[in-house]
Design a protein around this nucleic acid. Structure first.
Lengths: 328, 328
DNA sequence: ATGAAAGCGCTAACAA
DNA sequence: TTGTTAGCGCTTTCAT
């Protein structure tokens, strides 16, 4: 363990034989110092192992080189968010920013240059507080509260669900059901809407269930157990909540259904677990890591002015077809 | 969106009719100001919505009110780490600290008061760099490199694995196998050691596999497929890597084995997915959230001197028995 | 029990 | 093209 490194800008300036300002300018903005001194200072800094004092930079510039990240806690148990977080951190690192995790409402004001909110629930008080922060906010999926984010990264869930439904229909499914919750923000609401529209176009009766709030997989299993007796003709099941498809499989099997044959199953959130079930489950890949990176990127674009407030960017998503929806 | 809040300490002091110093002392250390002024200043600060400028505090005190957190990236798909992270953030928030996620090696020096490293892999260059940082480091599980952490939170995996093995033995298993990797640091190594010792004591031949590095679940499935023909007597399987038990089940079934009857299965990492498999899988609950909180707590104890460098704290873990290991 | 003043390391006016 | 000077908001001596 080496001792702390008190290599200040002054030390670098002194060693390079220039003034504090020149050293600062050489290390940062261009145009002010000559190329020769720029190189000299840069080399000196490197040699001395100089690393700027963030606190001092912060104090002076009123920026923090840090962005805040909030992920909903209810759904802790989701690999989706883990990937999302890594995506954000990746992109932030690329921009020389740190990422602070925001969960509870901090007592003192937050010290970040901007915020990324993953799936902001209108019901979450922390989200509400953060949406009102005095810094740019980027949300992944639209926020259904009254505040408006400066930037939004959203996917066309409706379009992809429609593609998926068409595939199921082509595979012979005539009586599909959707298990989705509006409690989870815009995502669930979009899925429900798209499902209703597809049903209307296709002329099938809407068969939809809202899982009880709380543990998603267990609630989904309950939905399945309730659906089957009520609708014995059910021949396809689409599960929205992450991890719930895995819960639906045993419930269907217990009811004597053969997944992939009697009943097709698909998940609205992909994940490694769905490759290992029997059969592997068709799923919508939301590209979580890419989503996180896109949010951070948009936030930085907002911060440096290369994106305007109100920007909405679309994120590509797609279906992975697996055996659970390919009978025969 | 309200404008930025330039409520400085000076503003509070002025409004309260005291000096900067008195205001500062009133808000922080005790003993210096009278109770009357303390209350006066506190009320004034609250009324004005004062929130201390972290950057200025940092600059002055050379602390950051931030701790760094590193979680291994290879195992992204683990809900274990998600819970762990929340545990750390929870505890940090309780201590009025922020948590910064550290993944890649930052170009500039890190600005944190201390570090928490979850499962530090000796092979991870980022971990190596962080272990050498000039701030206290707490690791969850021992680091097998040459650096020594200031604090360690560890569980007695050997003891709990032994309990699990005894349970399997009591349930009739005579030929148990362990799938564990030493590539994952001290945890895997401890499990392997404990397994060998138990085998020695019990007089059964050691049946152990090291899954190929990379995607844990797939590698585990490969191990299972290799184990069965080589050792047809195998009657119990313990899977260490997170998520691998779920992969083992279909592999065993494909080989014609009935899980819970022919062959008992247990996981060394619990997770919600294991409740939904058929049958539900017995697992060791590592209490990830508690682990994260314990790491942060130890770090703060180290920082304020209430724990000495070199402190090792044990974290309670235990087995959840489920149908996969209770035949009949 | 309280004030005055110094200064943490840096950037941005203002000079030269 | 470069140097000088003034703070950013706070904590901390040192003096009352």
């Amino acid at each position: 363990m080496t001792t702390a490194t008190p290599v200040t800008l002054i030390a670098v300036a002194k060693a390079a034989g220039v003034s504090k300002t020149t050293a600062s300018d050489a290390l940062r903005r261009s145009g002010r110092v000559s190329e020769a001194t720029r190189v000299l200072v840069a080399e000196t800094a490197a040699r001395l192992g100089y690393s700027p004092n963030r606190a001092a930079q912060s104090l002076r510039s009123a920026t923090t080189a840090t962005i805040g990240l909030h992920v909903p806690e209810i759904v802790t148990r989701s690999e989706y968010y883990m990937s999302f977080v890594f995506g954000v951190v990746d992109e932030a690192t690329r921009h020389e920013h740190d990422v602070t995790l925001l969960t509870a409402r901090r007592a003192s004001g937050l010290r970040v240059d901007g915020l990324v909110l993953a799936d902001p629930l209108a019901a979450d008080p922390v989200v509400h507080a953060l949406m009102d922060a005095a810094v740019p906010v980027v949300t992944c999926e639209r926020f259904l509260g009254d505040a408006r984010a400066a930037g939004i990264v959203a996917s066309d869930h409706a379009a992809v669900l429609t593609v998926l439904l068409d595939q199921l229909h082509a595979a012979g499914a005539r009586r599909p059901a959707l298990i989705a919750s509006t409690a989870l923000g815009d995502w669930g609401a979009s899925l429900q809407r798209a499902f209703r529209e597809w049903c209307g176009r296709t002329g099938v009766r809407v068969l939809q269930r809202e899982p009880a709030f709380g543990s998603a997989p267990a609630a989904t299993a309950d939905c399945v157990r309730a659906l089957l007796p009520a609708d014995p003709d059910l021949d396809a099941l689409i599960c929205a909540p992450d991890g719930s498809a895995a819960a639906a499989l045993p419930a269907l099997r217990d009811a004597g259904r053969v997944v992939g044959t009697d009943v097709l199953v698909a998940s609205c959130v992909d994940g490694p677990a769905l490759l290992l079930t029997d059969p592997p489950v068709t799923a919508i890949d939301l590209h979580p890591r890419e989503a996180g990176a896109a949010c951070a990127r948009l936030l930085f674009d907002l911060l440096d002015g290369s994106a305007a407030a109100g920007t909405v960017r679309e994120l590509e998503i797609g279906v992975h077809r697996r055996r659970s929806t390919t009978p025969g």
